[in-house]
Simulated scan of single mutants.
Amino acid sequence: MIKKLVLFTLFFQLWGCGLATTRPKLEMSLAQVAFLAAKEAKAQTLSPGVFRKAEFYYLKAKSSYRRKYFNKAKQYAILSKKFSEKAEFIAIRKQTLENL
């Protein structure tokens, strides 16, 4: 009886730990949209260094998410969004300055 109680308690403790980490769906979606917007702004040619960082972190976020490392995936997605937005801004600024 005690053995069953210990197993039952252990099972629910481990199950509860899995619920503590949530999937970073919003962060992944925002990172994807920002990355695609940077790509559409031709940041890969107008701001290649920053765009490369954004792509690196985006791919790391997707890989971590697939492996269920949700904390890492969230961190990488936030970094990807940051660099994607920066690359898009630089690309749009360069395009605007060329048209003046």
Score class of each variant (00 low, 15 high):
Ile2Lys: 09
Ile2Cys: 05
Lys3Pro: 00
Lys3Ala: 07
Lys4Met: 09
Lys4Glu: 11
Lys4Ile: 07
Leu5Gly: 09
Leu7Glu: 14
Leu7Tyr: 08
Leu7Gly: 10
Phe8Gly: 15
Thr9Trp: 05
Thr9Ile: 12
Leu10Asp: 04
Phe11Trp: 11
Phe11Asn: 02
Phe12Ile: 07
Phe12Arg: 06
Leu14His: 07
Leu14Arg: 05
Leu14Gly: 08
Trp15Tyr: 12
Trp15Ile: 13
Cys17Trp: 14
Cys17Asp: 11
Gly18His: 07
Ala20Met: 10
Ala20Phe: 12
Thr21Val: 12
Thr22His: 12
Thr22Gly: 13
Arg23Trp: 14
Pro24Arg: 01
Pro24Asn: 06
Pro24Gln: 05
Lys25Glu: 13
Lys25Tyr: 06
Met28Thr: 02
Leu30Gln: 15
Ala31Phe: 05
Ala31Val: 05
Gln32Asp: 09
Gln32Asn: 09
Val33Pro: 01
Ala34Thr: 03
Leu36Lys: 15
Glu40Lys: 14
Glu40Tyr: 07
Glu40Gly: 06
Lys42Thr: 08
Lys42Trp: 04
Ala43Asp: 03
Ala43Gln: 03
Ala43Cys: 02
Gln44Met: 14
Gln44Trp: 07
Thr45Cys: 03
Leu46Ile: 03
Leu46Glu: 06
Leu46Asp: 02
Leu46Arg: 04
Ser47Phe: 01
Ser47Asn: 09
Gly49Trp: 05
Gly49Arg: 14
Val50Asn: 07
Lys53Ser: 07
Lys53Thr: 03
Lys53Trp: 10
Ala54Arg: 00
Glu55Trp: 05
Phe56His: 10
Phe56Trp: 10
Phe56Gln: 15
Phe56Pro: 00
Phe56Tyr: 12
Tyr57Glu: 06
Tyr57Ser: 02
Leu59Ser: 06
Lys60Gln: 11
Lys60Ser: 11
Lys60Met: 10
Ala61Tyr: 06
Lys62Trp: 14
Lys62Asp: 10
Ser63Lys: 11
Arg67Ser: 13
Lys68Asp: 06
Tyr69Pro: 01
Phe70Gly: 01
Asn71Trp: 12
Lys72Asp: 12
Lys72His: 15
Lys72Val: 03
Lys72Trp: 07
Ala73Leu: 09
Ala73Lys: 00
Gln75Tyr: 10
Gln75Asn: 13
Tyr76Cys: 00
Tyr76Trp: 15
Ala77Glu: 00
Ile78Val: 13
Leu79Arg: 13
Leu79Thr: 03
Ser80Thr: 04
Lys82His: 09
Lys82Thr: 03
Ser84Ile: 03
Glu85Val: 03
Glu85Gln: 09
Glu85Arg: 04
Lys86Met: 06
Ala87Gln: 01
Ala87Met: 04
Ala87Asp: 07
Glu88Met: 12
Ile90Ala: 01
Ile90Met: 06
Ala91Gly: 02
Ile92Phe: 09
Ile92Ala: 08
Ile92Glu: 10
Arg93Phe: 15
Arg93Thr: 11
Lys94Trp: 04
Leu97His: 11
Glu98Arg: 09
